[in-house]
Simulated assay, not measured.
Amino acid sequence: MITLINRFEVTGPVEEFERAFERTSAFFAAQPGFVRHRLLRHLDRPGRYVNVADWADEPSFRQALLQPEFAAHRAALRALSDSDPELFTPLLERVPS
């Protein structure tokens, strides 16, 4: 499994960003290898968001980015925000015993 962590600084209306992200979320949820994601909104800094997305593997994630339909999603989000996407691999996870 890999995890995408993408920080967003919204430069346009936050309502538009959230709607665009919802459409992008639906697109990714339909892709092979998608596991789950969460969009987090900062409590004290309006316009700051973090997307944490889990994928089965890196090739699945990369293949989703290559889909022709993704170009419109990328353009919509870039028009409304700056982002900093990075991929991580799990190292340690703990749950209550």
Rank of each mutant, 00 (worst) to 15 (best):
P68S: 07
D82K: 11
P59W: 15
F61W: 08
R94L: 07
P13W: 01
F17A: 01
L92M: 08
Y49T: 02
A79T: 12
L65W: 15
S25L: 06
R74A: 03
D54G: 03
A79M: 07
T24L: 02
R41E: 07
R41G: 12
P46D: 14
E16M: 10
A75T: 15
I2K: 04
W55A: 00
Y49C: 00
V10A: 00
A26L: 15
Q63S: 07
E69Y: 12
A71N: 10
D82S: 11
T89L: 14
L77A: 00
F8R: 03
L4Q: 10
N51H: 04
M1V: 07
D82M: 08
A79E: 15
M1G: 02
A29V: 15
R38C: 02
L87I: 12
A72I: 10
F88M: 12
F8Y: 08
F88I: 14
D84H: 15
D44A: 14
E58A: 05
R36Q: 06
R23I: 07
Q67W: 11
Y49A: 00
F21I: 07
H37L: 14
L80D: 02
V95A: 08
S97A: 10
R94I: 11
P13R: 12
L4H: 05
S25K: 06
V52P: 04
A71I: 15
V95W: 05
H73L: 09
R74I: 05
H42P: 06
H42K: 01
R23N: 08
E9K: 09
A53R: 01
P59E: 06
P13A: 08
P46C: 03
E18L: 13
F27S: 01
F21E: 03
I5N: 06
F28W: 13
S83Q: 13
A30C: 13
R23Q: 07
A56P: 05
Q63F: 05
F27A: 01
H73W: 12
P32G: 04
H42C: 08
G33S: 09
D54M: 10
G12M: 02
A75P: 04
L87S: 02
F88G: 00
E9N: 11
A71G: 04
R45P: 03
P90C: 11
R36C: 03
D44I: 05
F70Y: 14
P13T: 07
E16W: 01
A29P: 05
